[in-house]
């Protein structure tokens, strides 16, 4: 049992934990600050991960043109980010002029479309189809950067890179949300017609917020696949809801809330999974398979979420005062 706890504590700062945190920060920009209902954060993450991995595995500038690995790494990241910007524009242009719920519907559907396209058989040459893209096809550059530089163990190196990016995101959110720009998007969250009547181009601000949060989602997607391979089914709707849980757990309209939420969520999920695994080997679940028992973890996550909404609806970091109004 102690092993499980220690293992889960190790997950606190794992790259996956950082990926959840970063995705939740992006979603916090959407929902917490701007009031945009993005139910397709997994789509942004998939776009980022596939953009990165497909570019690296197909183009591979290091091998093809002899680029330094760092440059190839940045280029691949840029491809993932650029793809997510295009994705945000495609989603935003038709919906951001309409009422908020339209974005919700479109994002949830678009994320699923991305996943199905990525796993379609016809694209196996590009995306690997349902097999996905194996780690050694896209991890060459990031490992090469480590080799000549810090020479850390691979896991530690991923952790350092991931958390450095989370810190950058935190600083960006903190800097931008205290600015007049942040004030405008918060105003849009409250009442977009009021903001319009004050001469602000609400549509453009919503688009900027959607792109910014989406880009963070894309980078989070890249972080998520570093310790594993790229698998289309890793970006299913459940991922979006996990990120939402992390966001609400931490506190939506706060700078550090999503980080805390992401870390806590990943820790709890790993811990509950570990405990269930232990119990399974002890035969507590009878004849159910280990995978089926593992699914129970999400039952507990759901229960935790209900408890959260009942006892601390503003999230761990949120301001209770903000909830006590009937706005």
């Amino acid at each position: 049992m102690l092993d499980v706890l220690l293992g889960s504590l190790g997950e606190l700062i794992s790259p996956s934990s950082a990926a959840y945190a970063l995705a939740a920060i992006g979603l916090g920009i959407h929902f917490g600050y701007s009031g945009l209902l993005n139910f397709g954060q997994a789509g942004f993450m998939a776009i980022g991960a596939y953009g990165f991995a497909v570019f690296t595995s197909l183009v591979d500038p290091t091998a093809t043109w002899g680029w330094p690995p760092l440059l190839s790494l940045l280029a691949a990241t840029l491809v993932g980010v650029a793809a997510s910007v295009v994705f945000a524009l495609i989603l935003g242009i038709p919906t951001l002029r309409l009422r908020g719920d339209y974005l919700a519907i479109v994002t949830i559907a678009a994320a699923e479309i991305v996943r199905y396209v990525a796993r379609t058989q016809d694209l196996t040459d590009v995306t690997g189809g349902s097999q996905g893209i194996r780690g050694n096809q896209f991890k060459g550059d990031i490992q090469a950067v480590n080799d000549g530089f810090l020479d850390l163990p691979t896991g530690t190196w991923y952790t350092v890179v991931s958390w450095a990016l989370v810190v950058v995101a935190i600083v960006v959110v903190w800097g931008i949300m205290r600015s007049p720009w942040g004030r405008v998007v918060k105003g849009i969250r409250e009442d977009e017609d009021a903001v319009r009547s004050l001469g602000k181009n609400v549509y453009a601000y919503k688009m900027q917020a959607l792109v910014l949060g989406g880009v963070m989602g894309a980078v989070a997607g890249i972080l998520l696949v570093f310790p594993r391979s790229v698998q289309a089914d890793g970006f299913a709707t459940i991922l979006t809801f996990n990120v939402w849980t992390a966001l609400l757990l931490g506190g939506a309209a706060t700078v550090l809330g999503p980080v805390l939420g992401g870390v806590l969520f990943w820790f709890l999920l790993s811990f509950v999974r570990g405990v269930i695994g232990e119990l399974h080997t002890l035969g507590v679940f009878g004849s159910t398979t280990a995978t089926q028992a593992g699914q129970l973890a999400f039952v507990f996550v759901g229960l935790a979420l209900i408890a959260l909404v009942v006892f601390r609806p503003q999230g761990v970091m949120g301001n209770k005062k903000e909830l006590s109004f009937n706005v």
């Binding site: 007049p180 720009w181 004030r183 918060k186 105003g187 409250e190 903001v195 309209a253 903000e322």
Partner: peptide, 24 residues
């Protein structure tokens, strides 16, 4: 249409035009 979860002062500042800090 007051912006509830903004302070009174923030509401006021939102009214000012041509703000450089409102550009992304």
């Amino acid at each position: 249409k007051s912006l509830g979860r903004l302070t009174v002062l923030q509401n006021m500042l939102l009214g000012a035009t041509g703000q450089r800090g409102e550009r992304f």
